Computed example of a mutant assay.
Amino acid sequence: MTWLLEPFATEFMVRALLGGALVSLVCAVVGTWVVVRGLAFLGEAMAHGMLPGVATAALLGAPAALGAGVAAVAMAVGVTAVSRRAKLAQDTSIGLLFVGMLALGVIIVSASRGFAVDLTAVLFGDILAITWADVGWLAVAAVVAVVFCALMHRAFVALAFDQRKAATLGLRPAFAHYALLGAVALAVVASYQAVGTLLVVGFLIAPPATAALWVRRLPSIMALAVGFGVLATVVGLLVSWHLGSAAGATIAASAIAFFAVSALVRRAV
């Protein structure tokens, strides 16, 4: 059992485990709605589309989280506005804004050569470098995400399954849509600074999708998704420790592997 316990005898691995667990909680709660509503592409686009905001914040000396939040909200509002006013399919709007935001981010980054290293951190993160301050921030974000999604649960359910009924019940589907986009932005912004956009997207989609293969009730999917996310964190950190691989990428790969195995098992039975 030494190989299992020894890595977590170090403080930085404990912080990484706690950070990964909190990211799992935030992304499981929000990601369940992303999977149910088929917004996986939007989640990925929002995560990577934060680049111009982060780059601008770095150049201005402002907090990176502030720039990321502004860019994520702009992406969410822009997708809805373009799809409605230009009468385009939502995935087309997402693709256009995704490429546009990435292009703008690269242009801004090119204005500062010294930002290249930080760009790598934004894209791939370094979960092993999580500080106790990051853990505290993730804990706050987790509480906010859980409370917010609990308060909006009825509206989100109606929005996901019957928008006309939601309007009839006075649940304001348009407001619920923007609220859900705001929850996705919260999950992405809260998590990326600690673990990078790769792991955020992986946790936002893979654990809820895996859980949905085994259970049907939304609260059960969320709870099981947290379990799969934490398990992926533990397995990824152990593999990374013993093989010397990149921790964030290994955790993301573990989450995807759990989905692949679950899909094969469910198909077999």
Results as ranks from 00 to 15, higher is better:
Arg85Tyr: 15
Leu42Asp: 03
Ala183Ile: 02
Val215Asp: 04
Asp126Cys: 10
Leu264Thr: 10
Trp137Lys: 07
Gly125Tyr: 06
Gly100Leu: 10
Ile107Asp: 01
Ala158Tyr: 09
Gly248Val: 05
Ala176Arg: 02
Val195Arg: 00
Leu204Gly: 07
Phe175Pro: 10
Gly49Met: 05
Gly182Ile: 02
Leu25Gly: 07
Leu59Gly: 15
Ala71Ile: 03
Phe12Cys: 04
Phe115Lys: 06
Val135Arg: 05
Ile94Lys: 00
Phe228Leu: 00
Glu44Asn: 09
Leu199His: 04
Ala129Cys: 08
Arg85Glu: 14
Gly202Glu: 02
Leu151Ile: 14
His153Met: 03
Pro207Gln: 04
Val143Tyr: 04
Gln163Thr: 14
Val35Phe: 10
Gly43Ser: 05
Ala176Lys: 00
Val235Lys: 10
Ala76Tyr: 01
Ala253Asp: 00
Leu18Trp: 05
Val188Asn: 02
Val99Glu: 02
Gly244Met: 08
Leu218Arg: 12
Gly31Gln: 10
Ala45Tyr: 00
Leu180Asn: 11
Val77Ser: 11
Pro207Leu: 01
Val36Gln: 15
Leu204Val: 06
Val230Gly: 08
Leu39His: 05
Val30Tyr: 04
Ala145Ile: 14
Leu224His: 05
Phe148Ala: 15
Leu243Trp: 12
Ala190Leu: 05
Leu4Lys: 02
Leu88Gln: 01
Ala76Asp: 01
Leu231Glu: 04
Leu59Ala: 15
Ala121Ile: 09
Gly227Thr: 03
Gly38Glu: 08
Ile221Val: 15
Leu238Val: 00
Leu123Trp: 07
Val70His: 07
Ala158Arg: 09
Leu60Lys: 06
Ala55Gly: 00
Trp132Asp: 12
Met222Ile: 12
Leu218Met: 11
Ala212Gln: 13
Gly69His: 06
Leu119Lys: 11
Leu22Glu: 09
Met1Ser: 09
Thr168Glu: 15
Val73Thr: 13
Ala55Val: 14
Ile108Ser: 02
Asp126Ser: 13
Ile107Ala: 13
Leu66His: 12
Asp118Pro: 04
Val135Tyr: 10
Phe41Met: 15
Ile107Arg: 01
Met13Asn: 13
Asp162Ser: 06
Arg217Lys: 14
Ile127Val: 15
Gly78Phe: 06
Gly114Leu: 11
Val269His: 14
Phe259Met: 08
Trp214His: 05
Cys149Ile: 11
Gly20Val: 06
Gly95Val: 00
Gly19Cys: 03
Pro52Ser: 10
Asp162Thr: 09
Arg217Phe: 07
Leu231Ser: 15
Met75His: 09
Ala255Leu: 01
Ser240Trp: 01
Val147Glu: 11
Phe258Asp: 06
Val36Tyr: 14
Arg266Lys: 12
Ile94His: 00
Ser220Gly: 14
Val147Arg: 13
Gly227Phe: 02
Leu102His: 04
Ser24Pro: 10
Met13Lys: 04
Val29Met: 09
Ala71Asn: 07
Val269Lys: 11
Val23Met: 10
His177Val: 03
Ala68Val: 09
Met1Leu: 13
Ala176Trp: 00
Arg267His: 12
Phe259Thr: 09
Phe8Arg: 02
Pro207Asn: 05
Gly236Gln: 01
Val234His: 02
Met1Lys: 03
Arg154Val: 01
Ala45Ser: 11
Met75Arg: 05
Gly182Val: 06
Phe175Leu: 13
Pro52Ile: 04
